[in-house]
Amino acid sequence: MRSLLRRRPRPRPVRTPAVVAAGGALVLAAGLVWHSAYAGFSDATTPLALPTVSTGALTLVDDDSAQRMFVATGIKPGASGTGCVAVTAGGSPATVRLYGTGRATTNALSGQLRLTVELGAPGSRGGASNCNGFTSAGTVYNGTLAAFPTDSWTTGVGSWTTTGSAATARVYRIGWSLPTTAPNSVQNGTASLTFVWEARTK
């Protein structure tokens, strides 16, 4: 840079600031013009309307009118009982499962009391009044009352799904029995459990 300056006549000191200032002004002006032209280009996508969002609706009822399915007192080894209940789900497509809540027992009776749950085939008849016309699609639980899953739809039994196009009903047949091998220690014992049917949308 210095060798180049030596080959040119040095301009007057009073004119140097003006030349530098003018050059800088031209460069700056060119930059502003270029950016202004660049900022003039624009484009946009076609407007897209947001979809309509709404919540679903879900209904679940049983036909026992909140009555106790079993009331058995003074039972002895070898005793048994059976009852049915119809559960109807409607609204949005959902999965229905059965579990228990509020389990209580004395003298460990729940550990001896056997419980079976059968899920009726689609279209099977029966309900809280009786089990006439019940057709089983299979046993969904066979064990003790003490081991029946509680407080969780996730571990519930007797799972079935609805399509959401119309209300769907399924019948459950629930049976209990006290084996003849029950020990004397369960005498004067009690056992209770509340059945809960829960539906969750898909």
Rank of each mutant, 00 (worst) to 15 (best):
R2I: 15
R2S: 15
S3N: 14
P11R: 11
P13V: 13
A18Q: 10
V19I: 12
V20K: 06
A22T: 13
G23S: 11
G24W: 07
L26G: 09
A29Q: 10
A30L: 12
A37F: 09
Y38D: 10
A39P: 00
G40Q: 09
A44Q: 15
T45W: 13
L50M: 09
L50W: 03
L50T: 05
T52V: 13
A57H: 11
T59C: 10
D63E: 11
A66M: 02
A66H: 01
Q67C: 07
M69L: 15
T73L: 14
G74C: 05
G74W: 11
G74N: 13
G78I: 04
T82C: 06
T82R: 06
T82I: 12
T88S: 12
A94F: 02
G100V: 01
G102S: 15
A104T: 12
A104C: 06
T106N: 09
A108F: 09
L109Y: 08
L109T: 01
G111V: 04
G111I: 03
L113S: 00
T116V: 00
E118R: 08
L119E: 04
P122A: 07
P122K: 10
S124L: 03
S129C: 05
F134H: 01
T135V: 15
T139Y: 00
V140H: 03
Y141I: 05
P149T: 04
P149D: 03
P149F: 12
P149S: 07
T150G: 12
D151T: 11
W153C: 07
G156T: 03
G158E: 02
S159K: 13
T163Y: 05
A166M: 12
A167Y: 04
A167M: 04
R170W: 08
I174G: 00
G175F: 02
G175A: 15
L178S: 03
W197I: 06
W197M: 06
T201G: 12
